[in-house]
């Protein structure tokens, strides 16, 4: 075993791209390293997952639940994206190994990359490529869903009136970033 000093460089797909911030109107900030799992299961497995993860996976379509920096996002009727701070992967995986009903837990911490999108024009910028109605009545705080941004598949989660988390496959990050830069260009003037 080679002695690894200095440690291997770790590259977040969005952090490697130029920053994108236009004052209070729009900003895209890399979320950075995070723990992510896809949890799949039915019925009792979902109850068991709630205990193992500390956040109950929502049964309602397109809703997220969060507690103590962990979140469970409904992506499908038997599919949830579990989010936690970087470094908690082993603990979470160990807890799920105790579940004795059929389920699936797969580490995708490195599969996705994420941005926090915020600002008074955040929905305007997203509407350049997302075909969903992002009006607060149609896409309230706490809603999450897989959808599209231009030609990239994304997961969009509304954290606040003017703040979203966007996840995409890591190789799609430069594309998503490029389309956001184009869409946000008209807000690149002083407030």
């Amino acid at each position: 075993m080679v002695d690894l000093a200095p440690p291997l460089a770790r590259i977040d797909a969005f952090a490697a791209l130029p920053s994108l911030a236009h004052g209070s109107r729009f900003a895209a900030t890399p979320v950075g390293p995070a723990t992510r799992f896809v949890f799949r299961g039915r019925g009792p497995a979902v109850d068991a997952a709630a205990a193992a993860f500390g956040v109950a996976p929502p049964r309602d379509a397109c809703r997220a639940a969060e507690a103590a920096e962990r979140a469970a996002l409904w992506l499908g009727p038997d599919e949830w994206l579990l989010l936690a701070p970087d470094g908690e992967g082993e603990t979470i995986a160990a807890a799920f190994r105790e579940i004795d009903v059929p389920h699936s837990l797969v580490d995708i911490s490195h599969r996705n990359a994420a941005l926090t999108l915020s600002g008074s024009e955040v929905t305007t910028v997203l509407a350049s490529g997302c075909p969903l109605d992002l009006h607060l009545a149609a896409f309230p705080v706490g809603m999450c869903t897989r959808t599209l941004y231009a030609k990239a598949e994304i997961v969009l989660w509304r954290r606040a009136v003017d703040r979203f988390r966007l996840e995409c496959g890591r190789s799609f990050a430069p594309y998503v970033h490029g389309v956001l830069v184009d869409a946000a260009a008209e807000f690149a003037v002083a407030d």
Binding site: L75, G76, P77, E79, T145, R146, T147, E153
Partner: peptide, 9 residues
Amino acid sequence: WRHVAGCGR
């Protein structure tokens, strides 16, 4: 049909 860029169902 499949809601491929949605719930996947």
